[in-house]
Nucleic acid binder design. Structure first.
Lengths: 148, 148
DNA sequence: ATTTTACATTTGTCTATACAATTGTTGTAA
DNA sequence: TTACAACAATTGTATAGACAAATGTAAAAT
């Protein structure tokens, strides 16, 4: 992926700017690929993410603020995100008995089954996106990302 | 930025997955920072991007498909993006005389002046985002991004 | 006990984006 | 010349997300 080709410019881009633009181009590619593989399951990346967090709870319920805390991309509106999952019967939501301000959200068996398939799909996407990167490349990338 | 801390998990994440998640976390940080510095000018990153492309035209007009081609993030709706810029008087739009299917879009002097200030703001954002990365780091990153 | 403050979620509103269908224009082939 | 295909942009519709305000509940202060 050559930056200058993609954005069709012939002039030299300063290294810092080039890095940011390059980053965004890669981001587009990642998003497109992941959106594509999740499409058959009719969930967005964010929704998938919430399902994964709920599974990680091992039966324990999560409330909205916990979800928000753990999401890769903090959302301003987790309520409606959970709504979507509920409408697909992938999650349950009840108000917390001990503190009625909170809600208890749990993944349903149906959600868990769907999630397993999504996992496979995502693994495929990851492999595709990263197919030209060696283990060493990946470690280097993670090391560099730590500096952000 | 430690991935495990941010998404609050204690279990080990496979390297590939970790890389993608790490990438997304960095992406959030970049987007937030850039959105922040552009906010005073009331333009989105996409709108800023269009203004830059128009400036790169050096007076020559651009039509919608050209813009679309050169944008970092291809959008499904460039018409409405240009609408927003027009409503701020940052661009002009006329139908192309030689081919009335096309439109000619130009940056206005007002747009050019605003853009100069935005440039400075973006430079600040870039410096902030990349403050802990050396020149060598940046080159390494660009090299790795080429593998995507 | 009553008021105030803080907490947790929900709702409203506006903007952004994806995707499909439509409109208007030009070029081309019968 | 007329029909048809291709092109360029616009519009419609549905969903996602940012941000602020509102609601309902619990805890703390007086």
């Amino acid at each position: 992926m050559n930056v200058e080709d993609v954005i069709k410019t012939d002039k030299e881009i300063p290294l810092k700017s080039r890095t940011i633009i390059h980053f965004m181009l890669v981001n587009n590619r990642i998003n497109e690929t992941i959106a594509q593989v999740l499409k058959p399951y009719d969930v967005s990346l964010q929704q998938f993410n919430v399902l994964r967090i709920l599974r990680g709870q091992n039966g324990r319920p999560a409330n909205l603020s916990t979800l928000n805390e753990r999401m890769v991309t903090k959302m301003s509106n987790t309520t409606r995100l959970v709504d979507k999952l509920k409408s697909k019967a992938y999650v349950d939501r009840i108000t917390c008995p001990s503190n009625r301000r909170k809600v208890e959200i749990r993944i349903t068996p149906k959600g868990a089954r769907a999630l397993e398939k999504m996992d496979t799909a995502l693994k495929t996407a990851e492999n595709d996106i990263l197919k030209d990167l060696s283990e060493k490349d990946l470690e280097q990338l993670n090391r560099l990302f730590d500096k952000f």
